[in-house]
Design a protein around this nucleic acid. Structure first.
Length: 805
RNA sequence: GGGCGGUUAGCUCAGUUGGGAGAGCACCUGCCUUACAAGCAGGGGAUCGCGUGUUCGAGCCACGCACCGCCCACCA
């Protein structure tokens, strides 16, 4: 027996190089065809391909290739995100290996070094995407810090500044002591942690007695400037307006009433530390309380912390608890579990601190972006994310956009000695307010997401009015992970509508999150990551794409290698059936004028699948689509059609050969968006009219044989009967021929005993008779349901009769 | 605390307006059959998480509960 397996290795790389070299990936605005554009979500420039990227690339490439075949002028725009904090952390780690810090080498050298590093080690994902067969236009690669993009970001900043949305303010922010920067609310992860709740007595200033407060952060008491109780709390009514004394700090602070205090929690009294807690900050501002800081930017106690200055918070807590115990002011300590904010990047605990930052008010930007989703101009797939988006947008809060980093877009604002601010796209000569020439630029950079919000149009040339922008804006689809609906999707909507006066794209596909096989998150640190390039190496890019699409059905999926293997088997099956047909066709042209039943039937099935694929893909339903391709190929094409025509192929039946070639051609077109390599490889061996499958037209609807879609049902049922009982029902001549071919190929004989089959039919008849005897069913069920039941009953009776004579 | 998703065969999961409980893998049986053993033909295996309700009829709809996961959130 000849062992023939399809080996994707080499084949896939060859086609990837050919397609790219022949320019099939490249788009030009003046090409004919309706524009279709997807902007690849820019991966971090320091990043590597992980399973989420691979899934999203498979989805987008499937859409892109499908539309390319349909004749659209397709652009899949690639590029990178400069990834401010992530990249800076990488370079700082590099420096640390040499025993250096960024402060030692200075800002200019640090930024230069970052560019050098990126030149050498960055941007490897595009190569990895190539290996997956992703047909992005690699000639149009952009980066959120390339020259043109920088201009776009500056324009965006000045635009928002001029409209009064951007302003500088001293507020409490999420400070990451490791990143040494503020971060936005969206970059904070709340994680449950075991902690200790400490109950502390604050003596009353007048007379005797005390008030007890409960806190998880005793060190912050050194910056307490008030105590708050709920105005409805009878226990403390008389104390409102009086003063308490903060122990250790020995500070007299007012007791205020505020509804944000929960009576049920702790003692019902809340120590107020406006400088180190977001809620306290707001309560403090509303009551005019002083704002003190005892914790510095490094997370350690600062000089205001008196005897604790320079200590860590843990050391300080120990010291404070000890002192309170000595003074008899420590009531109790108890274990307490609560959620604590952590930096999304460094994983470090967030330190709420008051610092001077740039903020952007979002309500007015959000309003039209809310409207666009509400009225359906922008749709989420699945639709359930619509509410997630709307809920966040309707409660949107000011965005802290400044970062105390060196890698990023430097804030285009200059200050004069009098403190006036001048925002400009290029360095101004004089202060816009007083004309001073002593200008100093803001030291900070912008949040990475501030620039990526412009991705759908800045990559097309904005702020220049380019032909690309004219052609491909708005884009069509954005496909991303649900984790960045707010960080990115929402902000692209806002920026697009604000700057382009038009939504950036009409469809937002939120793809599945691929977890490890055990259900945990895929992550390098957990050791649960699976490298998509490994599965490409083991099973091929086609198989990997197929498997990922097959898996991506619900919102969370467990990675399942069996699905990739299924893809590999599909590629192998396709390869082999193509060998059967190609080995038995000589000098015939593909011809779609079938004579025989099985030929009309396979063409009907091919067209039905085409229609199903179109419906599924239009609805961003990928798993049912690849499932349909699998069953079309295995069941319909190979197990039935190919088996039925095999002997005619051997016999040199030219018409059967011509039809087989045409049917194979059509099958390959349907498979190409999902499995481009194997389909192109087979295509190249066909006498096809188009030189490349990648640019061959997607099949037009062809309903000539639609009524034949179920033509083989009777044969298939007959085959089952034969295999079970050895007895066949009466069939038409052509049906009989197909049955003979398939049963002979299968080598199944049956034992000639119809007993089991008779029993099965009697059970079915009894069930159907029961239903039809139910008056309420017959009267109330839809007519077609009742009719179908009657037909089934009739058929079962006929078959039973055939068996029993 | 609020919201969303999930719970179907041993495993991973489909199940599209309510009408025959499915696929792949795994397992069992028979086959090297001039495309494919990475294959072909067949088979066993499910109280559809639990409960109540609506309906002639519920995996699907309504209400409640349990468990798992995710998102949002200023109870220290």
């Amino acid at each position: 027996m000849m062992d023939t397996r399809y080996n994707p290795e080499g084949v896939e790389e060859r086609w990837q190089q050919t397609w790219e070299a022949e320019g099939h990936y490249h788009a030009e605005p003046d090409t004919t065809g309706e524009p279709y554009c997807i902007a690849l979500p820019p991966p971090n420039v320091t990043g590597e391909l992980h399973m989420g990227h691979a899934l999203n690339a498979s989805i987008q490439d499937m859409l892109i290739r499908w539309h390319r075949m349909r004749g659209f002028n397709v652009l899949w725009q690639p590029g990178y995100d400069h990834a401010g904090i992530a990249t800076q952390n990488v370079i700082e780690r590099e420096l640390a290996k040499e025993g250096l810090s960024r402060h030692q080498i200075g800002r200019e050298a640090f930024v230069a070094r970052t560019w050098e590093w990126l030149e050498r080690y960055g941007g490897i994902i595009m190569g990895q995407l190539r290996r997956l067969g992703a047909s992005v236009d690699y000639r149009r690669e952009r980066m959120t810090m390339d020259e043109g993009y920088v201009r776009a970001v500056l324009r965006w900043f000045v635009h928002l500044y001029d409209k009064g949305y951007l302003y500088r303010a001293n507020r409490i922010v999420n400070w990451c002591p490791v990143c040494e920067s503020a971060i936005s609310d969206l970059e904070v992860n709340h994680i449950e942690e075991d902690d200790t709740l400490t109950w502390i007595r604050y003596p009353l200033a007048a007379g005797s007695g005390h008030l007890t407060i409960a806190t998880v952060r005793p060190p912050t008491m050194l910056a307490d400037t008030g105590v708050a109780v709920n105005p409805n709390d009878d226990r403390y009514k008389d104390l409102v307006g009086k003063e308490a004394i903060v122990p250790i700090a020995e500070r007299r602070v007012p007791i205020v009433a505020d509804e944000r205090v929960e009576m049920e929690f702790g003692s019902g009294a809340l120590k107020i530390t406006p400088g180190h807690d977001p809620t306290d900050f707001e309560i403090g501002r509303d009551h005019g309380l002083e704002e003190l800081a005892v914790i510095g930017l490094d997370g350690r106690m600062n000089e205001q912390a008196g005897e604790f200055a320079g200590l860590t918070q843990e050391e300080t807590e120990t010291g404070i608890v000890e002192r309170l115990r000595e003074q008899g002011l420590l009531e109790k300590q108890e274990p307490y579990r609560h959620s604590v904010g952590h930096c999304d990047r460094s994983g470090n605990r967030i330190e709420p601190l008051i610092t001077l930052q740039w903020w952007c008010d979002m309500e007015e930007l959000a309003a039209p972006a809310i409207q666009a989703v509400r009225d359906g101009r922008v749709r989420f797939y699945s639709a359930r994310y619509t509410d997630v988006y709307l809920n966040w947008m309707e409660n949107i809060r000011p965005w802290c956009v400044s970062r105390q980093l060196w890698w990023g877009h430097r804030i285009p604002v200059w200050y004069c000695p009098d403190g006036h601010t001048t925002a400009a796209e290029s360095a101004p000569e004089v202060c816009g307010t007083c004309g001073s020439t002593e200008l100093v630029q803001d030291e900070d950079v912008l949040d990475t997401w501030f620039s990526s919000a412009l991705w759908p149009f800045a990559t097309l040339g904005w702020p220049e009015q380019t032909p690309e922008l004219e052609t491909w804006y708005p884009n069509d689809v954005s496909s991303t992970d649900r984790g960045i609906i707010f960080l990115w999707e929402a902000r692209m909507q806002m920026a697009g509508i604000e700057l382009m006066s038009e939504i950036p794209f009409h469809s937002i596909n939120i793809h599945s999150t691929v977890n490890a096989p055990d259900g945990r998150r895929m992550s390098k640190s957990l050791g649960t990551g699976i490298d998509p390039l490994e599965t490409v190496k083991a099973h091929g890019a086609d198989a990997t794409r197929y498997g990922l699409l097959k898996m991506s059905s619900s919102q969370d999926v467990r990675f399942n290698m069996k699905m990739i293997e299924e893809g590999r088997r599909l590629a192998n099956k396709l390869w082999n059936v193509a060998r059967l047909i190609l080995a038995n066709t000589e000098a015939v042209e593909p011809d779609l004028r079938p004579r025989e039943l099985e030929e009309r039937w396979i063409l009907a099935r091919l067209d039905a699948t085409r229609a199903e694929l179109e419906a599924r893909w239009s609805a961003f339903e990928f798993s049912p689509a690849v499932n349909a391709l699998y069953h079309l190929t295995f069941d319909d094409f190979c197990d039935w059609y190919a088996e039925a025509i095999k002997s005619r192929l051997y016999d040199g039946d030219a018409e059967a050969q011509a039809t087989a070639l045409a049917a194979l051609e059509r099958l390959l077109r349907l498979l190409h968006p999902v499995m481009p390599h194997v389909s192109e490889e087979i295509w190249s061996q066909l006498p096809a009219r188009e030189s490349r499958l990648i640019k061959a037209p997607w099949p037009e609807p062809d309903d000539r044989y639609a009524e034949e879609a179920d033509a083989l049902t009777r044969v298939q049922e007959a085959a089952e009967m034969v295999r079970r009982s050895g007895v066949a029902p009466t069939l038409e001549a052509d049906e009989q021929r197909i049955l003979a071919a398939v049963v002979r190929q299968a080598g199944a004989k049956g034992d000639g005993d119809p007993t089991a089959e008779i029993e099965r039919l009697r059970k079915e008849i009894s069930r159907a008779e029961g239903m039809l005897a139910n008056d309420r069913f017959v009267q109330r069920a839809p007519a077609e349901v009742v009719d179908a039941e009657r037909e089934k009953l009739a058929r079962y009776r006929r078959e039973l009769e055939a068996l029993t004579g």
